[in-house]
Design a protein around this nucleic acid. Structure first.
Length: 738
DNA sequence: GTACTCTCAGTTTTT
DNA sequence: CTGAGAGTAC
C-alpha cells in the first residue's frame, strides 16, 4: 500500500494538529514503539492526536492494514471524527471497514458474529434504559418486591454496577447482596438475565460481558486466535475512564501482541460513578511489563490564565498522579466571575455576554452545565432573544416517546419475540386492549412458553377471545404479517412510513390537539428520513441502540449547551460555566454517596470545564435557585475560592463584587412597611469566619429589594433580596462593598 | 376499558 | 413545578 503523507490538508489548523504537538522524540516514540505504550497527557496536549499520529504512521509505513488496527474511542462522535481526520491525512483509506468505535459498538459487532457460542440469537435486540427498567419492574413485582421502596431505576443501577465490574450472577458474593433489596437482588439479577435470553436481548453491559465470556472460554480458542491475529495494533482513547469490564475485554484481545497504546489523563477521570477505574492506569505497567510511558504537559489550547487557574484548582485534589501543565500561548484575559440573582438572570447575563462577542462564530461558544435541568432556562432565554443554540445530550431524539413508539413497531416487525416492544405498542393507538387483556395474554404466553406476539397469533387463530377484542387483535396481527411480507419488496423507509400510517399511529397524533402533537409528527417524519440513510431496518435499529444521537443542524452557527460530562474531549474559544454553587456543583448527591472521592471527581469535572476554554472562561453562580418549585439559597461553590484570586475578575450586578467574600442575610422581617434585614457574615467560601455581626437595613417594601447597610466593623454591605410575600427567615447571599 | 382527578417523588453525570 | 402512577366514576 502506498500512502503519502503529503496528502495532509493544507488547512493550517490541521497541519498544526498533526505536527506541532509532539517533540521529535515523543513523536518518534508514538510512531515506532512496539508493545505497550501509555501516554499520560493533560488537557489540551493533543491526546487524541497522538492516536491519530500513530495510526497514520502505521498505515503510511504499511505496518498495518486498516482492518488490523482497532481504535477505541469514548463516544461514537469521537470515532467518526477520528476516521475523518485519518482519512483526510491519508488518501485512499477505506474507512467503512475500520474497527474504530466505542467499546460497546465494537463489542456488539463481534457479538453479532459469535452469539451462537453462548446460545444467543445473533439478531438480538439491544435494550435501552427504558426497556431495562420496565423489565426489572415486572420481575420485581413478580417476586414480591416493594417497587416503591426499591424502584426499578435503583435496581438497574445495581445491575449496571455489577456489570461494570464484570460480575455475572455467579460471581456475586454473599457480601455483595447483603442488605440490599431485602436480600433478593441476586435473584432479580438471575431472573433478569434469563428473561433477556428468552427475549433475545442484551443490555449495554451484556455487549461487553458476553464477549468476554466467549473470549475466555477455551472452547472458543478459534475466535480468540482470529482476533489476536487480526488486531495487530490497538489504541484506546480516554483510558482513565475505562471500567473493569472494558479493561478485561481489552486485555483479552491485546494479550498476544501487546501492541496496545492507551492515552489518558487521571485529572480528567469523571466517570467513577460508572465504574471507571483509575487503577487501570496504575495496573497498566504491571500487566504490560515493558510498557513505555510518555508524559505530555505542554498545553496548546488555552491561555496561561485559564491553564493556571485550572492547575491551581486541581492541585486541591490529593489523589492524583500529578503533573503541571504549561502553555506557550500568548497571555489572554482573566477568568470572568459573576454573581447573579437567580437562574433566570444567569441566562440573561450569559446571553448579554454572548451578544458582546459579536465577531465570534457561535460555534466557538459553549455553555457547560453540571446537570441536565440547567439547560431549560437558557433555552427559554435564547428562544426569546433569537439566539441560535443547540442542546447536546439532554432530551435526545431517540429517547422521545413518539420515536420510541415508532421504533417499537419496527422492532416487533423484525423480532416478533420482542415482548417489550409488543407491550409498548399494543394499545398505541388505543385499540381497546387494556391492562386486563394484556394480563391474560401474559398468562397464556407463559403457560405455553410463547412470546406475546405468538400468543396473540394463537388466540386469534383459536378465536378464544371476546368478539370485539378478537377483531382488534386480529387487525393488529394481520398488519404485522402484511408488513413482514412487504419487507423484501419495498424500500425500508417506505415500509416504515406505511407502518406508521396503517397502524394508525400518525393519525393518533394528528387528532391530538395539544401543542406538542405537531412537533411529534415532525419528529416522526424526520425519523422516516433518517431510516432512508441506512441499508436496512436492521442496521438502522443497531444504530439507534448504540448511537442515540442525530446530527442535525450541524452546519448552522449555534451556541452549544451541554453537560460538563458531554464536553469531554471538546474545546471552544469561549466557555460559560453557570451554576457554580454548593449543592449543584459540587453536587450534593455525589458527595453524599461517595464522600471525598466524589468531591475530588467533582473537582476534576470543574477542571475539565475550565480547560475546555481556549480564550476565555466565564463562571457564574446564582444566589437563588428553584428546586422542585421551592426557592433555595445558594452559596458559591468552594471551587470558586480555590481559584487564584489574581487570575479572576469578579463582577457583580451592582458592580461591587470584591474578592470572594460573601455574607448571608440571616433574618428578614417584613412585618412592617419598612423591612429590616439582619445580616450575618458567613464567609463560607473563604473559610475565615469573621464572627457574627448583625445590623439592620431599611429597604423599600417591594418584591425585590436592595439596600446598603453599615456593619459594626464599618464594612458597607449591599444586599438584595426578594420578599415574595414571605415573612419567615430567609437568608440571602449578599455582596460586600468596601 | 377509558377519561379524568389526585398524590407524590424526583434533579447528578452516560456508553 | 412536572410527570408518572394510582384511584375513581362512567
Amino acid at each position: 500500500m502506498t500512502l503519502q503523507l503529503n496528502h495532509i490538508k493544507k488547512d493550517k489548523d490541521m497541519t498544526k494538529d498533526y505536527l506541532l504537538e509532539l517533540n521529535p522524540e515523543q513523536k518518534k516514540a508514538v510512531e515506532t514503539t512496539k508493545g505497550a505504550l501509555l501516554v499520560l497527557a493533560g488537557a489540551g496536549t493533543g491526546k487524541t492526536r497522538v492516536l491519530t499520529t500513530r495510526i497514520v504512521h502505521l498505515l503510511k509505513s504499511g505496518e498495518a492494514a486498516p482492518h488490523q488496527i482497532m481504535a477505541v474511542t469514548f463516544t461514537n462522535k469521537a470515532a467518526t471524527e477520528m476516521k475523518e481526520r485519518v482519512s483526510s491525512l491519508l488518501d485512499g483509506v477505506p474507512v467503512a471497514s475500520w474497527w474504530v468505535g466505542t467499546f460497546h459498538s465494537l463489542s456488539a459487532r463481534m457479538l453479532r458474529r459469535h452469539a451462537d457460542r453462548i446460545g444467543l440469537n445473533s439478531n438480538f435486540i439491544i435494550l435501552d434504559i427504558d426497556d431495562q427498567q420496565r423489565l426489572l419492574k415486572q420481575i420485581a413485582i413478580d417476586i414480591g418486591i416493594d417497587v416503591k421502596k426499591w424502584n426499578p431505576k435503583l435496581l438497574a443501577s445495581i445491575i449496571d454496577g455489577w456489570k461494570n465490574k464484570a460480575k455475572r450472577p455467579k460471581d456475586i458474593s454473599f457480601d455483595d447482596v447483603l442488605d440490599i433489596v431485602d436480600g433478593k437482588m441476586l435473584k432479580i439479577y438471575e431472573i433478569y438475565q434469563a428473561r433477556l435470553k428468552s427475549l433475545s436481548a442484551c443490555d449495554f453491559g451484556d455487549l461487553l460481558l458476553h464477549m468476554i465470556e466467549i473470549l475466555k472460554d477455551p472452547k472458543n480458542k478459534d475466535i480468540l486466535d482470529l482476533y489476536h491475529d487480526q488486531f495487530r495494533y490497538m489504541l484506546v482513547d480516554e483510558y482513565q475512564d475505562t471500567n473493569v469490564a472494558q479493561y478485561l475485554w481489552l486485555r483479552l484481545l491485546a494479550q498476544k501482541y501487546k501492541n496496545i497504546c492507551c492515552v489518558g489523563d487521571d485529572d480528567q477521570s469523571i466517570y467513577g460513578w460508572r465504574g471507571a477505574e483509575i487503577n487501570n492506569i496504575l495496573r497498566f505497567e504491571k500487566d504490560f511489563l515493558d510498557a513505555k510511558i510518555i508524559r505530555l504537559e505542554q498545553n496548546y489550547r488555552s491561555t496561561p490564565q485559564i491553564l493556571q487557574a485550572a492547575n491551581t484548582l486541581i492541585s486541591h485534589n490529593n489523589n492524583r498522579l500529578g503533573k503541571e501543565l504549561w502553555s506557550a500561548e500568548k497571555m489572554g484575559e482573566k477568568i470572568h466571575l459573576q454573581n447573579v440573582w437567580d437562574s433566570k438572570q444567569e441566562a440573561i447575563e450569559i446571553n448579554a455576554e454572548i451578544k458582546k462577542l459579536k465577531q465570534v462564530n457561535l460555534n466557538n461558544i459553549a455553555i457547560l452545565v453540571r446537570a441536565g435541568f440547567q439547560t431549560r432556562e437558557f433555552e427559554e432565554r435564547f428562544m426569546t432573544t433569537n439566539l441560535p443554540y443547540r442542546v447536546v445530550g439532554g432530551l435526545r431524539f431517540y429517547e422521545r416517546a413518539e420515536i420510541r413508539d415508532a421504533i417499537a413497531y419496527f422492532r416487533l416487525l423484525i423480532q416478533p419475540a420482542d415482548d417489550l416492544a409488543f407491550e409498548r405498542i399494543i394499545n398505541k393507538p388505543k385499540r381497546g386492549i387494556g391492562k386486563a387483556t394484556i394480563g391474560n395474554l401474559h398468562a397464556f404466553a407463559k403457560e405455553n412458553n410463547l412470546s406475546l406476539y405468538a400468543a396473540s397469533l394463537e388466540l386469534v387463530k383459536k378465536q378464544a377471545l371476546r368478539p370485539k377484542l378478537l377483531i382488534k387483535l386480529k387487525e393488529f396481527i394481520d398488519n404485522f404479517e402484511s408488513w413482514r411480507m412487504q419487507m423484501s419488496e419495498i424500500p425500508h423507509s417506505e415500509l416504515a412510513e406505511n407502518i406508521l400510517n396503517e397502524s394508525g399511529y400518525i393519525d393518533m397524533w394528528k387528532s391530538d390537539k395539544s401543542i406538542e402533537a405537531e412537533g411529534k409528527i415532525e419528529n416522526l417524519k424526520e425519523l422516516v428520513g433518517a431510516i432512508a440513510e441506512f441499508e436496512n431496518l436492521h442496521s438502522f435499529l443497531e444504530h439507534i441502540a448504540l448511537v442515540m444521537e442525530t446530527q442535525k443542524n450541524i452546519n448552522q452557527d449555534m451556541v452549544t449547551i451541554m453537560t460538563l460530562h458531554a464536553a469531554k474531549g471538546l474545546e471552544f474559544d469561549y466557555v460559560f460555566l453557570p451554576g457554580w454553587e454548593e449543592g449543584l456543583f459540587p453536587n450534593q448527591k455525589a458527595i453524599d454517596e461517595g464522600g471525598i472521592k466524589s468531591l475530588e471527581e467533582e473537582r476534576r469535572l470543574a477542571y475539565v470545564g475550565l480547560t475546555r476554554a481556549k480564550k476565555k472562561a466565564y463562571i457564574f453562580h446564582a444566589s437563588n435557585r428553584q428546586i422542585f418549585g421551592n426557592w433555595t439559597d445558594c452559596i458559591p461553590s468552594r471551587f470558586i475560592s480555590e481559584l487564584p484570586e489574581d487570575l479572576v475578575e469578579a463582577k457583580s450586578d451592582s458592580g461591587f463584587y470584591r474578592g470572594h467574600k460573601s455574607c448571608n442575610l440571616s433574618h428578614f422581617d417584613n412585618s412592617t412597611d419598612t423591612n429590616r434585614a439582619y445580616i450575618s457574615t458567613n464567609t463560607v467560601n473563604t473559610k475565615e469566619k469573621t464572627g457574627n455581626f448583625q445590623a439592620g437595613v431599611r429597604v423599600k417594601h417591594s418584591k425585590f429589594g436592595t439596600g446598603t447597610i453599615l456593619t459594626a466593623d464599618g464594612d458597607k454591605l449591599e444586599i438584595s433580596f426578594d420578599t415574595a410575600g414571605r415573612k419567615k427567615i430567609i437568608s440571602r447571599f449578599v455582596e460586600i462593598i468596601s
